[in-house]
Design a binder for these strands. Structure first.
Lengths: 257, 257
DNA sequence: CGTTATCTTGACGTACATCAAATGTCGTGG
DNA sequence: CCACGACATTTGATGTACGTCAAGATAACG
């Protein structure tokens, strides 16, 4: 992880693997992710206050920047790329609890220790805040705290939906739900794209859906055979029949063939 | 659901089945659940403010007081009894997302619509707040909002732990995890009881763990046969070997027999 | 002390896991 | 440009943990 703003701090350099700091002037004002992130709670005039606390960091693919069980010292706001969040069992079984995309605020699901690890899937850009210093901002801007509570509420809704998926849906229903979720745009108001790119491997998808890689693969090819989706390449998905895919994801009875 | 404080409101009576209002004087000051609930964020002198907003309600066993998909109008604070929170698929498959015990604050996992239904398992006592009116309290007492955020963070941690359970643990590991969670006292500082009562049926446990009632039953009897637990009656559990139960729940390799 | 719901136990089935191998994809260097 | 190797994905054959179906056994209750 390399710090690229606002000034190279020693501790940031220490954490970074190949730290090569670059200064980004006024990062918050030019942030692509701002409109979809908790930072939208602040007005332009207050944004510089946030910018002084934020360090823009770049995380290389495969690099872990939050470690399950460790003491949390920072909050992160994802501004670019995709992050996998996961928990491990002692024998290596892995459950991915979510994929964080731009706008996702990381660091809420935390007590004394981090509840999960976070690892960059692609090159990821995050905005890092010291927990103690962000505390001060929260005290000054109640709107920000309220936005954070809303963000936590959304995550809770998503977590419960995922519990339903993991506990009660079939493999087909899980994959359909997953594909539709991946097809969702960052802003709810934007139309869902018919074609999109999967930044994660089949192994990631399997560990997210509580399945094996083989079952995910077989299920995808079956959805392709049935013309619900097309797969121009393993990572490219085209939704051909959104209606049936949604019915499947929602757990409606499948029509007999 | 019957309103028993502070004054019988018409809309409360409308919602209640056999509404027979009773006035409870100064409910918050004498609340058993206060020390374990979000209300502990308020000091004694501010508590009366909360009390004017709170309606103490009693919910009969089996009664649903939050309906998935409906527009949320209230927050609830559980002060007595146990509540099951669940989501349904159209064909009736059910996933219980959690059991709410005294101190649990309900109504965070909500966007436009309730993310889950809530049903009393036993006779339940809840403290009901109108969402709009609680909003005003939050503006006046930032400590309360902060406590709510902490509560949401705890729920998120629990939700992720449950995703790990549902996605990657075996039936044995799930049941062991469940029993240990049920053995946890309301306050983290209190010692865990060696013997406790399960307020829910095997069906509830199955729908919580993503299993069937038969698998839950078989797994419990196997744990009993192996002397990890005792079952004086189906609803009474005695933890005999906490160490092995914890190893099982944590997903450690089981010793070969 | 029947009646009914809940729980337990047994026999059998299946959706998904496991094991194994072929195929496809992509970066690298000749 | 193409051959090569490393790795991801797909496909096939087989196994199994848990689900389903079906009785009993217990407990709860008027």
């Amino acid at each position: 992880m390399r710090s690229i703003s606002p000034a190279p701090r020693p501790q940031a350099a220490a954490l970074a693997s190949g730290a090569a700091p670059l200064v980004v002037p006024d990062p918050c004002a030019h942030c692509d992710a701002r409109s979809v992130s908790v930072c939208s709670a602040l007005e332009d005039k207050d944004l510089h206050r946030l910018a002084t606390l934020a360090e823009v960091m770049e995380v290389a693919p495969g690099e872990t920047f939050i470690e399950e069980g460790e003491t949390p010292e920072h909050f992160f706001n994802v501004t670019g790329g995709t992050v996998r969040l996961y928990k491990l069992l002692p024998d290596g079984r892995r459950q991915i609890t979510g994929f964080a995309r731009p706008g996702h605020f990381l660091g809420l699901a935390v007590g004394e220790a981090n509840a999960f690890s976070a690892e960059a899937l692609e090159t990821v850009r995050v905005c890092r805040f010291s927990r103690s210093r962000l505390r001060a901002v929260l005290d000054d801007f109640p709107a920000f705290e309220r936005r954070l509570l809303r963000s936590a509420a959304n995550e809770l809704v998503a977590a419960q939906e995922q519990m339903l998926l993991l506990g009660r849906k079939t493999a087909r229903e899980r994959v359909a739900s997953f594909l539709l979720a991946q097809a969702r745009p960052l802003r709810a108001c934007d139309p869902p794209p018919g074609r999109f790119h999967l930044p994660m491997t089949r192994t990631d998808i399997a560990d997210y859906l509580g399945l094996t890689i083989e079952t995910v693969s077989r299920t995808m090819t079956r959805l392709r055979t049935e013309k619900l989706i097309a797969l121009p390449s393993p990572a490219e998905v085209v939704v051909l029949d959104r209606g049936r895919l949604e019915a499947l994801a929602g757990g409606f009875e499948e029509e007999r063939i």
